[in-house]
């Protein structure tokens, strides 16, 4: 009565297959749950806000009359802010990551810095707002300007950029570095010519995630005193400003239904800015990855 080794009545194997199927279903369920929640949110927002979305909404300053109100100053403020944050945080963040991964002697100080950066990434954003208020607004006397806002936000997202860049740099194969060293390259030449380009797609992903976080943050901006009612456009980095999340927050906190719908419209504008940024990043990443292959 010897059973064939391939006979399917092997209950042990069937049990294992069943387990695998169940686990796959569970994972799929959780995935779809997340996607469904996001979809519901988006649909809700779109239904609320779409009727206010027109050119007038984009080109008007805020107003106490809902039909006259728009996001012009907030949108321009956000674009100013995000550009300045990028200029400040990307070079500092990437250079820090490069230093920690490639150039520093991996001693105790590097370890301490490493642990601290990881901790900083978890600090609530309002705390950064308080730091920004103390250092940039008052200490350095930048007042409630775009500079104060951008520097505070840069502090907030630097840990994210550094951590993501370090992970990207770690994925560059050691063999590429060795090839460069064996040609008589210094560590800096190797990092600049090979490690950085090879880790560029990963760094870009991290940078975009970080900037996306910055674009949606409200608390630190309120803390450093970004204005909630701005009927002019900032003309330079030292001007005061408002940003989309603050405008949205302002509208939501009013009692009238129309302003709530305006807030939904503002959220759509914010999302469009965000998606455009992400799409640009994906496009650039795709192009560079193709070039590498």
């Amino acid at each position: 009565m010897k059973r064939s080794p391939l006979e399917l009545s092997n209950t042990n194997i069937q049990k294992r297959h069943r387990k695998a199927r169940m686990f796959r279903l569970l994972c799929a369920g959780v995935t779809w749950l997340g996607a469904a929640l996001l979809a519901i949110l988006l649909i809700q927002i779109t239904l609320d806000g779409i009727k206010w979305l027109d050119i007038q909404f984009l080109t008007s300053f805020p107003s106490r009359f809902p039909y006259k109100a728009g996001v012009k100053s907030a949108l321009v403020g956000t674009l100013w802010l995000i550009t300045m944050i990028a200029i400040v945080s990307i070079p500092i963040g990437v250079a820090t990551a490069l230093y920690l991964e490639e150039l520093s002697h991996k001693g105790r100080i590097a370890k301490i810095v490493e642990v601290n950066i990881a901790n900083l990434a978890g600090v609530p954003s309002i705390v950064y707002g308080i730091i920004g208020l103390a250092i940039f607004v008052r200490g350095l006397g930048f007042e409630r300007s775009l500079v104060s806002g951008a520097l505070t936000m840069s502090l907030l997202i630097l840990p994210v950029i550094i951590i993501a860049s370090r992970e990207a740099i770690k994925t560059v194969p050691m063999s590429i570095r060795h090839a460069a060293y064996a040609l008589g390259a210094t560590k800096l030449q190797t990092a600049w010519a090979h490690v950085l380009p090879a880790s560029f797609p990963g760094i870009l992903t991290g940078v975009i995630l970080a900037l996306s976080r910055a674009i949606g943050e409200t608390a630190p901006l309120i803390m450093i005193g970004a204005l909630t009612y701005v009927a002019f456009l900032p003309e330079g980095p030292m001007d005061s400003f408002t940003a989309l999340p603050i405008q949205i927050f302002n509208w939501v906190s009013r009692p009238q239904q129309e302003f709530h719908e305006l807030a939904a419209g503002g959220i759509i504008v914010l999302l469009v800015v965000l998606l455009t940024m992400n799409a640009t990043a994906i496009f650039i990443r795709h192009k560079t990855e193709k070039k590498l292959q």
Binding site: P173, S175, H178, A179, A180, A182, A198, L292
Partner: peptide, 12 residues
Amino acid sequence: IGMVFQKPNPFP
């Protein structure tokens, strides 16, 4: 003193 490695490692 140059070196060639075990696995080919051209730059990308």
